[in-house]
Amino acid sequence: MTARDTDWDGVRLHVVTGKGGTGKTTVAAALALALAGRGRKVLLIEVEGRQGIARLFDSPPLPYEERKIAIGLGGPEGPRVSGGPGGDVYALAVDPEGALLDYLEMFYNLRRTGKALTRLGVVDFATTIAPGLSDVLVTGKATEATRRRQKGVHVYDNVVMDAPPTGRISRFLNVSTEVSGLAKVGPIRTHADTVARVIRSPQTAVHFVATLEEMPVQETLDGIAELRAMTEIQVGGIMINMVRPAMLGPDDLQAATDEAELATALKAAGVNGDSALPRDLAAELAGHARHVELQDRERCELTAAGQPSYELPMITDGIDLAGLYRLAAELRNQGAA
């Protein structure tokens, strides 16, 4: 048995949001890898048609089809225990059109009609005039995958959704209300209600990706407040991304800007002949100190939200598969997966 507790035991659908530029897709992918311990199967879904997952995993563009994209992080205990290879991570790029065809086929056996509808522009109609409808189709695909069973067993142990950015997340998840403005009765309404039940259940958690800067932090706090106002939606963790290791504490940083000390040290190390260098290094350090101070302040604001938070290091040489596994290991070691 893998009796390891994580902060999100019981959550099967992980929704990952975040402000643009904070690395939302990267964190969603790392979370999927972390969840896919030995013998587990995880589906990573992207919904915005940017093919960010394919780019991250260096694979050709994903079709509307669940495809194996990687092996999860090894062992149920992560890198601390040699637990053998991880389970499978599948990926899927959902688009409203494909989701509509799926929906028609699944519930009405109407795939061919669906294709005709696409040609006639009905899908454009549905998704353009009523974005609530397109959101319900997309989230519907994620909840369907979450609930899908084969021989009585869930096909996927976890589904991770790389969701729209923070500014749009509450509307995106509020499918039932969005659709009810348009459709008071009818099958799409029933469908929306089913989707909403999954999203508003303890099976689903919404995680926020933030960096330690003013705007991402503000948006995260706003997003959390919005979701909390929509009761029943479980706010998940805060993934603080791209954290640079603090090499010196605040006091040490202050002390290190002493130009005379720096001058002596540089001389001792054999770096000579540049009298302005100590001053310039001290200036650089002073700037760094202010930045660290700002980051600490932002971190405090985030933790004040009262959600579990996880810190992910800045991967300096660009994110590749190795970098993703490193982030996955961090998430697992910190109890997020």
Binding site: L104, Y108, L110, T113, G114, A116, L117, L120, V122, F125, A126, I129, L133, L182, A183, K184, V185, G186, P187, I188, R189
Partner: peptide, 21 residues
């Protein structure tokens, strides 16, 4: 094609939605 389509749309969205549209 249209009547098939409107039929499907009605099925999908409900008659009220189509009327509103």
């Amino acid at each position: 094609g249209l009547s098939m389509m409107t039929g499907a749309l009605t099925k999908l969205l409900g008659a009220q939605v189509l009327k509103d549209a």
